[in-house]
Amino acid sequence: MKIIAVIPARYASTRFPAKLMQDLGGKTIIRRTYDAAVATALFDDVFVVTDSDLIFEEIQSHGGKVVRSIKEHESGSDRIAEAVKEIEADIVVNVQGDEPFINKDNLEKVIAVFKEDIAGEIDLASLMVPIDDWESIENPNNVKVIVDQNQMALYFSRSVIPYPRDKEVGVQYYQHIGIYAFRKAALLEFTTLPMKSLEASEKLEQLRYLEYGKKIKMAITNHVGIGIDTIEDLEKAKRLLEQYPNL
């Protein structure tokens, strides 16, 4: 089983333009993320996929592997699928370019889903973290997921799911963490499938997989990555790196 990591790296960002090219401890954020992915030793190959000449040159000039994104894409899955179409792989792991402090345990969890899937039935693997405070549960920016007894995803939503008609039942709520591992065949098929109403309504691409009958298995984690979406996030990351230089 050949497992590769792909790091989507768009130059434009609404909240923090050019964030991936910002300096973090002597390296750009995108190069630090790339190096961290390679250092996990979990992957047969690691690629950055980008629409930016600057990011392309940044990775290539430091000996990294980078793929040019040619088309404009509506979703991360589409962008990754374009990049890996001609790359030999069985499993494709999406590593977030703006999370340079990669948690190896999280990546191992999604990879393990496929290693344990002897029958080859799982199309995607992803992560969820338990949440208990109602502010987080009710926040539409926090995508919730419900699963069956085998941790197969039943539905993802920005709404509160399940609805707490009886709060005494003791339901555990889970927030979806956007780390994906795809079976390559399922990823490529995704690009041929028209968007349906659930995805269009919630603006969650994982719903397209479910609407077309794909199987998504969730793994539980307690570690939420440190994303860099604002200048304030970058300053926090710099302080963290000063405190823990081996991150």
Rank of each mutant, 00 (worst) to 15 (best):
T192R: 12
A125H: 07
H176D: 02
K215D: 07
A219G: 06
G76K: 14
F190V: 07
T192G: 14
A119T: 00
L198A: 12
Y209Q: 05
H73L: 11
Y180D: 15
I59G: 09
R183V: 13
M21N: 12
I216D: 08
L207D: 07
G120N: 05
A41K: 15
A153V: 13
A185P: 15
I131G: 10
V48K: 03
E232A: 08
Y163C: 12
G64Q: 06
R15W: 02
F156T: 01
S52T: 09
E82R: 08
I29V: 05
T191V: 15
P100T: 08
P245D: 14
E108H: 04
A181M: 11
V92G: 01
V49D: 06
R183C: 15
G97K: 02
A41L: 00
D44I: 00
I59T: 01
I4Y: 04
S69E: 01
E88I: 01
L207C: 10
E108G: 09
A36R: 03
I4G: 03
S159C: 15
E205L: 12
E99C: 09
L154T: 04
V145G: 03
V38F: 07
S69V: 01
G26E: 14
G63N: 09
E58M: 06
R31G: 11
N103E: 11
K71E: 07
V49N: 06
K115G: 13
M1V: 06
S157G: 06
K167G: 06
D123Y: 04
P194R: 13
P164I: 02
S69G: 07
S52A: 10
A89F: 06
T221D: 00
V171M: 11
I59H: 00
R239C: 05
R10M: 11
L54N: 10
I177Y: 07
A89P: 10
D132V: 05
W134S: 03
T192Q: 14
I87A: 12
M1R: 01
E211S: 15
K2G: 15
G227S: 12
V84A: 15
W134K: 01
L24Q: 14
V110K: 07
W134L: 03
S159H: 05
A12G: 04
Q175V: 11
G225D: 02
V110E: 07
Q151D: 14
L241N: 11
A12T: 09
A186G: 15
T40H: 04
G170W: 01
K65Q: 10
S136W: 06
Y11H: 07
P162D: 04
P130C: 02
L210I: 13
R183Q: 13
S61E: 09
E86S: 14
F16K: 02
E205T: 11
G225M: 05
N103Q: 06
M152V: 11
N142W: 13
D233Q: 04
D166C: 14
Y209P: 08
D51H: 02
K196T: 05
I3F: 03
P164F: 10
G178E: 02
E72L: 03
A5T: 01
K214H: 05
I7M: 08
H62K: 01
D233W: 09
V38Y: 03
S77D: 09
M195W: 12
M218D: 10
K184V: 15
K196F: 07
F47Y: 13
D132Q: 02
K196V: 11
V95Y: 00
V113F: 01
I102W: 02
D148H: 04
R79K: 15
L124T: 10
I70A: 02
